[in-house]
Nucleic acid binder design. Structure first.
Lengths: 218, 218
DNA sequence: TGTATTGAACTGACTGGTCAGTTCAAAAGG
DNA sequence: CCTTTTGAACTGACCAGTCAGTTCAATACA
C-alpha cells in the first residue's frame, strides 16, 4: 500500500540452502505486516491474529513459518539492522574509494541513514522503541545488532583521529552515539511532523550542524 | 532503592486545594512504580497488578486514584515533561541573565538535559520508546508535551538567528530536533553502556560536538 | 479526656474477556 | 506426492477493571 519498502526485500538468493520461494514469500508478507503493526502499537499490544490478517494469511501459517511471536520479531530485528549496517558501510567505503575526507564519509553516512529511515520508517520506529529497554527476551540480540551499526561510525571517527583530521580529544564512542542520535531523532521528527520536506533538505540541515556551520553568521 | 529520583517529588504544597497528603503519597508511590516498570517492559507488557505490588498497595487503590491504566500513564508523562521543560527554560534564562551568548544558552540546556536524564533515566527511556508511536490513545498528549520541550530549544535558536549569532540558513525546527536527539541518544547510551562516566565528561564531549570543535585537529 | 461518627482511602477476591499457542483434517500448489 | 497453507476449534493462562467490605484519621460530642 505505502510506497515505503519492506524490510528484507533482497533475498533473491533463495537458491542456496534450498529455501522454497513460496515459503520465502509468505515470510516476507509476515515481516511486512509485523513491522508496521509493532511500530504502531508495540510488541505486546500486537496480536498474532492481527499480523496474520494484515499479511493475508491464516494464523496457522504464522506458526508454520516461525516458532513463536517473539522469534518472528527477533528475526525481523536482525534482518533490518543487517540492511542498515551494510548501507552505512557501503557509504563509508564509497567515499573512501573516491578519495573523500573522513568528514565526507560521515556526511555520506548521515545520508545513508536518512535514506534508510525514509525507506523503512516503521522499522526505525520499532527499533528505537525497543533499544533501551531492559528485561526483554531479545535484549541481547538488540545489543549485538546495535553495536554492529555504531561500530561503523566509530570506525570512521577513529580513522579520522588517526590521520589528524579530527581532534584527538574527541570521545569516539560517545560522539558516535551522539551522531547516530542526531540523525535518528531528526529523521523521525521529519517523518512524523513534516513529511512533506525532501530528503535533500533534511540532509543539508544536518550537514550544516555536523560541520559546525551553525554559529558564525552568513 | 536506586539513588535516582522519582518523577514528581516536589508537591509538598498539598495544603492548597485540599489534596490530602495521604492520597498524594500513594499517587507518588504509584508513579514511581509505574515509571520503572513501563520503562523496562513497555506499557502493554506491564500489568496493573505489578504496578500495585511494586508500589506496596492493593490493586483497587490504583483504580481509586486513577481512572485507568492509561490515565495513570498519561499523567506520568505530563508530569515528567513538565519538569524537563521547566529545567530547560530555567537553564536558558540563567545564562541570559548572566549575559551569556546563545551558544552558552544551548550549552547550558544540553547540561540541563543531561542532568534530567541522569536523575530520571526510566522516565526518559519510556518517553523515547513511546514518542514516535502512532495509533495510541495518548498520542496527542505526547505531541503537546513534546512540542513544549522542543519549543524551548527552538526559541533560543531563533533568537540566535535574529541577533546574528547563528547563520540565517539554519533550519530551526529541524536543528532543534537534531540537538535534542543528540543529547537524548548520547545520554541513554551513556546510562546503558558506560554508566561509570561522569556527567561532566559526557557534557564536555557533547559541547565539543555542538561547537564544531570536532574536525580541525588540536 | 475518652468515645462515637463520618467520609475518604484502601483492600483483594472475583468477573468477563482476550490472547498466545496448539492441533488437525482438508485443500491448494508445484 | 511432498510441501505448504488453510481455517476453525480449543485450551489455559493472564489481565483490566469492579465492588462489597474494611481501615484510618479527623472531627464532634459528652
Amino acid at each position: 500500500m505505502s510506497a515505503r519498502g519492506t524490510i528484507g526485500a533482497m533475498e533473491s538468493s533463495s537458491a542456496a540452502s534450498g529455501g522454497s520461494t513460496r515459503r520465502e514469500a509468505t515470510r516476507q508478507k509476515l515481516y511486512e505486516a509485523a513491522v508496521t503493526l509493532i511500530a504502531e502499537q508495540g510488541f505486546s499490544a500486537t496480536t498474532v491474529d492481527e499480523i496474520a490478517e494484515r499479511a493475508g494469511v491464516a494464523k496457522g501459517t504464522v506458526y508454520y513459518n516461525f516458532a513463536s511471536k517473539s522469534v518472528l520479531f527477533e528475526e525481523l530485528l536482525r534482518h533490518g539492522v543487517g540492511l542498515l549496517t551494510a548501507s552505512l558501510r557501503e557509504a563509508a567505503e564509497r567515499t573512501a574509494r573516491a578519495g573523500g575526507s573522513k568528514v565526507d564519509a560521515l556526511d555520506a553516512m548521515v545520508r545513508a541513514g536518512l535514506v534508510f529511515i525514509d525507506r523503512y520508517p516503521s522499522f526505525t520506529q520499532l527499533y528505537v522503541a525497543e533499544l533501551w529497554r531492559t528485561n526483554r527476551a531479545w535484549q541481547s540480540t538488540l545489543m549485538v545488532v546495535r553495536q554492529q551499526a555504531v561500530a561503523v561510525v566509530e570506525g570512521v571517527l577513529r580513522e579520522g583521529v588517526d590521520n589528524g583530521e579530527f581532534s584527538e580529544e574527541i570521545d569516539v564512542p560517545l560522539t558516535a552515539a551522539a551522531l547516530v542520535g542526531m540523525v535518528l531523532v531528526a529523521a523521525l521528527d521529519w517523518q512524523s511532523f513534516q513529511p512533506e520536506r525532501s530528503l535533500d533538505d533534511v540532509h543539508a540541515a544536518l550537514s550544516r550542524l555536523l560541520q559546525g556551520r551553525v554559529s558564525g553568521s552568513r
